[in-house]
């Protein structure tokens, strides 16, 4: 084992996720390499400091507050049920509108970027991402190929945050 291989295994070793032969190989290298031994000692100490740092305690009435909050939710349920019985065409239309919205927001970003190339793209990301939560709860997006449409813009707009967010939406 060389130093690079040893460094690559440090996390697994610290998290106790190495099988015994691999852990032995790391320990054998560390025993004969001062640099890796030094690094491993620092990693261990940093992890110990992190793992033992004080934690925030929830208020003593936190659980009761949550239980009260779900009471309120349950009283509002009839409205949600009404939405769930929307006809399929209406749901698809809503999803279509949401898709058009996402694509147009992304297109807007594209145009902005074209005309203000010198301007920072950080701001653009914020503007785009700030609008996206609007579509958060539309499960119907699973049926629509939104990401493919957005991909067409990807050479000029950094799609990573948008794609990541869509993945998050689809995975919740």
């Amino acid at each position: 084992m060389n130093c690079q291989q040893c460094q690559n295994e440090v996390d697994a070793l610290l998290d106790d996720r190495l099988d015994p032969p691999a852990a032995d190989a790391v320990r054998a290298h560390v025993a004969s390499c001062a640099a890796c031994a030094d690094a491993l000692r620092d990693y261990k100490a940093a992890w110990a400091a992190f793992a033992t740092a004080p934690e925030l305690e929830p208020s003593s009435n936190f659980v009761a507050r949550v239980m009260n909050a779900i009471d309120v939710v349950d009283r509002e349920q009839p409205a949600i049920r009404w939405m769930l019985v929307w006809p399929r065409f209406l749901r698809l239309a809503t999803a279509g509108a949401a898709t058009a919205f996402v694509v147009s927001v992304a297109s807007l970003g594209f145009l902005q970027k074209q005309t203000t190339l010198a301007m920072l793209d950080q701001r653009l990301h914020h503007d785009l991402l700030a609008e996206l939560p609007v579509i958060e709860h539309l499960e119907m997006l699973k049926d629509l190929d939104v990401i493919r449409h957005l991909d067409q813009l990807s050479p000029t707009v950094d799609m990573e945050p948008i794609e990541q967010m869509l993945q998050e939406i689809l995975s919740t």
Binding site: V10, D11, L14, A39, D42, Y43, A45, A46, W47, A49, F50
Partner: peptide, 12 residues
């Protein structure tokens, strides 16, 4: 982990 190790080293 690398970042934590570097940042915390002076205090460790």
């Amino acid at each position: 982990r690398v970042t934590l190790r570097i940042r915390l080293k002076p205090y460790l």
